[in-house]
Structures are given as C-alpha cells and as structure tokens.
Amino acid sequence: MANEIAKGPATPGVAKHDPILIVDNVRRQFGGLVAVDVEHLEIPRGMITALIGPNGAGKTTFFNLLTGFDTPDTGSWTFNGTKLSGVPSYKVARMGMVRTFQLTKSLNLLTVLENMRLGAQRQPGESIFAALFKPLWAKNEKAITVRAEELLKRFKLDAKSEDFAASLSGGQRKLLEMARALMTEPKMVMLDEPMAGVNPALTQSLLEHVKGLKDQGMSVLFVEHDMHMVRNISDWVIVMAEGKVVAEGPPNEVMKNPAVIDAYLGAHHDSDLGADKIAKGE
C-alpha cells in the first residue's frame, strides 16, 4: 500500500507519487507556544487522508493555516502546483480547496436550499449591480438550484430544502455543510471532525458520503478522533503531536507504529478520544 501512494518508506514527510498539496516549513506560534511546526508534508491526490493526533496537536490550526483562515509565521505550501501562502481564504476556496468546520457553521437563518445555493461559484447575481436586474442572473440561479436539489437528494436532505437550517439536527447540519462544500465543485475537501457530535445512526451514511467524494475524483483530508472511521475509510494516515508530524503511512501500519502509540494512542487505545471537546482552539 505504501508503495502505491508514497515514493519511499512511510516516514514523516515522505514524498508521494502524485501529491495535490505540498507543505514546507509551516510554523505557527501563539505567544510562547508552537502550535504547528511542519517541515515537509505531501497529501496524495485522489485519496482519503486522515489527520489524527491528541488534543492540542495543532490539527485544526494546521487546517486553518492551509485554508487561509490563519497566517503562519513562516512557511509555504502549494496546492495543485499553485503557491497558496498568503492567499486569502476565499481565494483558496475558489481554487478548489474547500473546508468544513469542527463546530458546524450552517447558516441558521437561511433555508437549507439557500445554504446550498450559496456554495455555487461564479454567480453573476452575486455582483451588486447585476443583482438589481433579475434577468441577468435568473438562468444561472435555475441551474444551481437544480444542482443543489440533486445534492440534497443524495444527502437525503431534499425533504428539508425549504426549512431554516436552524431546524436541522446536528448530524443533518454536518451533512448540509458537506453538501454545501460540494456545491463549490472542489478538487480537494478538507473536513474538520466530520463525525463530531453526529448521532450514531447517521455515521454510516456520513462515511459513505466521504467515500463517495473519493469515487468522484476528489482528494479528501480530514481531522478525526474516531479511530473506527479512520481505519475504515482512509487510504493514508498522518499523525501530528505537539505541532509536528510524527508519523504517516497506511492506516494499519501507522496504528502499529510505536511512535504513534507513544505519542497518542498509548493508554487511551480503546477510549473514544473523539468525545473530548474541550480543546476547540487547539
């Protein structure tokens, strides 16, 4: 497995055959605390990659840095060959790297359908001048509505399309956020704890949806505490601890890596670390 994805043995920072995202020397410090310090990392294209690590390992901060929601002190990274350092978050999304959030950000007082439509890119009606003249954007609106309804159907939210997003359950909101992200037609999807707070009845369907992304040719990078999900769907696992990448490799190999067991799994091997929600700002 390692040889299919990586060019060499599965050590931290190993080069990949076909990376979509290449990170170099990204470092972020808060006061005296080094939150993220990644020397070199490559994320494989068209695969599902999991990013795991104990609380405070800097996973979410790393996500924020890569997607332009935070600025690193040093470092650079390229997405699909384009340099992304210093690019504002909205442009990152336009280039095809879209993210979701650990605490779901459904837009509560918009309907589910409006949430979806918002995800579509290059809408003529989003210019303030064109907005005043409906004929300029009505056609596009129709087209994105069709696409939104298809996606909603796939995510089994079509019955809710006219409801306010506020009325959805936690799991449905996660689904909506993912579906909305797909409206942007991304090349890479970054999911920050897609399983957190999701009702067990919905986890299986969420898993299927994540796998579905890969089937459609997208690359996925997700942060997760739920080891079941990590083992189940990921092709590659990256382990962070104290801001650094301490290990990477195929799921089964990584889980056996003593460095990982040491840094992270250790005594907590069987406990559900995903339930720990205190370190939101890690």
């Binding site: 929601f69 907005a131 942007t184």
Partner: peptide, 27 residues
C-alpha cells in the same frame, strides 16, 4: 430586490457566520 438576489444571499450568510461564507469562496 437586493436582499432577494444572490448578492443578498451572500450578505445574509455573512450575518449568520462570515467564516462559513468565506470558506465558500466569497470575498
């Protein structure tokens, strides 16, 4: 007219959560 247009959808989104709107590629 403005608030019922796609432009209005974006600003209403910003009212709800600007980071979410940013993550969807809006300036």
């Amino acid at each position: 007219i403005l608030v019922r247009s796609p432009w209005g959808r974006v600003i209403k989104g910003i009212r709800e959560d600007e980071d979410a709107v940013r993550s969807l590629g809006k300036n």
